[in-house]
Design a protein around this nucleic acid. Structure first.
Length: 551
RNA sequence: GCGCCCGUAGCUCAGUUGGAUAGAGCAUCUGCCUUCUAAGCAGACGGCCACAGGUUCGAAUCCUGUCGGGCGCACCA
């Protein structure tokens, strides 16, 4: 961050001296090949036209104007006009001081500028326990919220409870069916009902409370009792499962409150007024094709019932009414066909759908055990619940696994691998890096070592190749956080952490710390590793994973 | 049939939004523990970036087409 900023400023003023504007597509980044230096930029190629000079000639002029800066060790022109820049070791050593000063704030930035973002995630219907697929959405949403906060966004997290509509009615019917069965009645299985064991448990609880009156009261009333009890208990279970997974939503938003407040009717009226909705074939339609959807969508079915989409429109209107600038919806990837109509909805609300609505699709998880895939279906009651998985592998391993892939790619979650304490299980690799540093400090204390604070002079001892590799990586952490926030990709943080951990483990093997030979070198190395531990902690925190002191 | 996503090492995946000679981990093979945690490190092997065109100084990345896989295409959620 510091390095790219410094270089950009130097280049900008050099170009400005020649009346050349900063080309928009300029990149400044670490070159793939380390022998090219610390940073490479294509600025001369991008600005060549404006400068009316060949790229290499412009690059040479820029090189000369940079060469005098004391922070730069070398500047060279290469290839078609790349400018390769190396900073001095002293510059990199300062990074330890930077990390020390910022502490747990190291890596935060202000690119969010306080923009208000809402992240809505999980939002599973309260018709059954969360399964492992929900767990992935939970990990991605929670981590994304943390990343966005670190990048200076003002974030609020929310769970939308679909507590109105058909699925909940089926839940009530499913429970009532089990009640009857348990009370000795022979009844036909309802269609499309939920058959998991938890339904039977709920039925037993209701029988304890109400006994046979469930059979004698009007059926609608009995179904309602079942539905309400089921919803309350299942939702409580979901909250507990999420808490155990270290995921906490700030707002729990029930769909029913939208209906109660007349928000759906208000949304309809608004659409009608804008001429974006109409009656046809006894149904009420949203003209989503106006905004590029394939076809118009029904909001009120000809039978008078609302579609899900109807309350989704009201819900999103409500989100924007609450003042959010950007709304993030995290969905299962199988809902991707829903995106165009949701974008149309946002457009109809008078917002720019690209800027105001980010839909993050989370691919399904293949759960593997003993090399076999475990099939899942909520309705059939066959699934590995999130709670089971967390109990088996722990929240840390599960979260890290969920965040170790781009969210929209398939994920094989191998229960055997995740329980192994090996490289099949990267979470241990990263956590071990933290524990190793902590263990060194514990050892140092044991030996009665006093470790002087880091100073420029002391840090000058950090001059091996491994020192500089680590320092450069530490300096890249803020960029990683910024990139993760910009691209809504928390997995970038876990990739960075794996790199940093690898670098640390190598360092540990190659450079003795406590037995370095002289106290100053030992102290300098400890201060460096302390900074590494700080960054590992900060990064793991963005993933919601613990950084243990010992393993 | 139409739309979206995907195709990179034997396997699982990155690839900083168009940059220089393509990157990790696992697996396989070879080394490294009388010394700070071997839950580790080093090295080797491994590639027509699905295929064919195009755009330009430059393409795994952008465009078109083909093949292959996944998912959508409801007055279900």
């Amino acid at each position: 961050m510091r390095a790219t900023d410094i270089l950009r400023e130097l280049l900008q003023s050099a170009l400005a001296a020649q009346d050349i504007a900063w080309p928009a597509k300029t990149t400044i980044e670490p070159p793939r090949d380390k022998t090219h230096g610390d940073l490479a930029t294509n600025v001369a190629m991008m600005a060549a036209k404006a400068a009316k000079k060949p790229p290499r000639e412009l690059a040479e002029a820029l090189r000369q104007s940079l060469a005098s800066d004391p922070r730069l060790a070398a500047v060279s022109v290469a290839g078609p006009g790349f400018l390769n820049v190396a900073f001095t070791p002293g510059f990199w050593q300062e990074t330890v001081l930077e990390v020390g000063r910022a502490g747990e704030a190291y890596g935060r930035c202000a690119i969010g500028q306080g923009v208000r973002v809402q992240v809505e995630y999980v939002s599973a219907n309260p018709t059954g326990p969360l399964h492992i697929g929900h767990g992935r959405g939970a990990a991605v949403g929670d981590s994304l919220a943390r990343v966005l906060r670190a990048a200076g966004y003002s974030v609020e997290t929310e769970y939308y409870i679909n507590d109105a509509g058909r699925q909940m009615r089926i839940l009530g019917q499913s429970i009532l069916y089990r009640c009857r069965e348990l009370l000795g009645e022979t009844v036909a299985e309802p269609e499309d009902y939920y058959r998991g064991d938890y339904i039977k448990d709920l039925a037993k609880e209701l029988i304890d409370q109400h006994g046979r009156t469930l059979l004698t009261m009007p059926q609608d009333e009995a179904t309602d009792i079942c539905r309400l009890h089921g919803e309350r208990e299942i939702l409580a279970g979901i909250k507990k499962d999420l808490t155990d997974f270290r995921v906490g939503h700030e707002v729990w938003f029930p769909e029913s409150t939208l209906l109660a407040a007349g928000a759906v009717d208000a949304a309809f009226a608004d659409l009608r007024e804008k001429n974006l909705a109409y009656d046809k074939d006894g149904a009420f339609w949203f003209a989503s094709t106006t905004f590029g959807d394939d076809k118009d969508r029904v909001l009120v079915k000809s039978g008078g019932e609302l579609t899900y989409f109807a309350s989704d429109i009201a819900y999103h209107a409500d989100k924007f009414r609450r003042g959010f600038d950007v709304v993030v919806d995290i969905w299962g990837a199988d809902h991707h066909g829903y995106v165009p109509r949701m974008k149309a909805c946002v457009a109809a609300l008078g917002r720019d759908p690209e800027a105001s609505l980010k839909v993050i699709l989370v691919q399904l998880v293949n759960l593997l055990k003993g090399g076999e895939q475990i099939a899942m279906s909520t309705r059939a009651g066959k699934f590995e619940t999130l709670a089971d998985v967390v109990a088996e592998v722990g929240a840390d391993a599960a979260r890290f696994m969920f965040l170790s892939r781009k969210s929209d790619s398939h994920l094989d979650f191998d229960l055997d691998a995740v329980t192994q304490k090996s490289m099949d299980n990267p979470v241990y690799y990263v956590q071990y890096a933290h524990a190793r540093v902590k263990s060194l400090f514990a050892k140092a204390a044991e030996r009665g070592l006093t470790v002087p604070e880091a100073t420029t002079d002391l840090l000058a001892r950090l001059d091996t190749g491994e020192d500089l590799e680590l320092l450069r990586l530490l300096e890249q952490y803020p960029d990683t956080v910024a990139n993760a926030a910009r691209s809504f990709s928390p997995h970038l943080v876990s990739f960075y952490l794996r790199d940093l951990a690898a670098r640390l483990h190598r360092y540990y093997t190659v450079n003795p710390v406590l037995t370095a030979g002289d106290e100053a070198t030992t102290a300098a190395r400890l201060r460096l590793l302390e900074a590494v531990a700080q960054v590992v902690r900060n990064g793991l925190d963005l993933l919601g994973v613990c950084a243990p002191d010992a393993m």
